[in-house]
């Protein structure tokens, strides 16, 4: 359960792993995780392979992240979504704002 972050070896990717439930329980932790991100980071990767559940508050958190990172100036990748999680991102048309893979 919870959230873990790491920089990839090249320092260009910042990876946020979300385990278990992605919902408003993570609001503060999630926002703090990308505060003061190194300038070298070009891509933020949300690693969802261990995410079991997601709800609309998580969608709100992702949109806020996008806004606060300066919409579009850094890529945000939502990766390794399980099909059920992918379905929820698709319903909300997140594929237009994020790179989902």
């Amino acid at each position: 359960m919870g959230l873990q972050t790491e920089y990839a070896n090249d320092g260009k990717h910042f990876i946020i792993h979300i385990k278990g439930k992605f919902d408003f329980g993570l609001v503060q932790e999630f926002r703090q995780s990308y505060d003061g991100l190194s300038d070298r980071v070009t891509t933020v990767v949300i690693e969802l392979r261990e995410t079991d559940y997601i709800d609309s508050s998580a969608l709100g958190m992702l949109l806020n992240m996008r806004k606060s990172l300066g919409a579009g100036s850094r890529n945000i990748h939502l990766i390794n979504c399980r099909p059920e999680i992918r379905q929820i991102l698709d319903i909300s048309r997140f594929d237009k704002l994020f790179i989902i893979d």
Partner: peptide
């Protein structure tokens, strides 16, 4: 198991 994620989502939305 296979539909627990969407079921969670709708229950969580309604409950919250």
């Amino acid at each position: 198991k296979e539909f627990k994620a969407p079921l969670y989502t709708v229950l969580a939305e309604a409950y919250n």
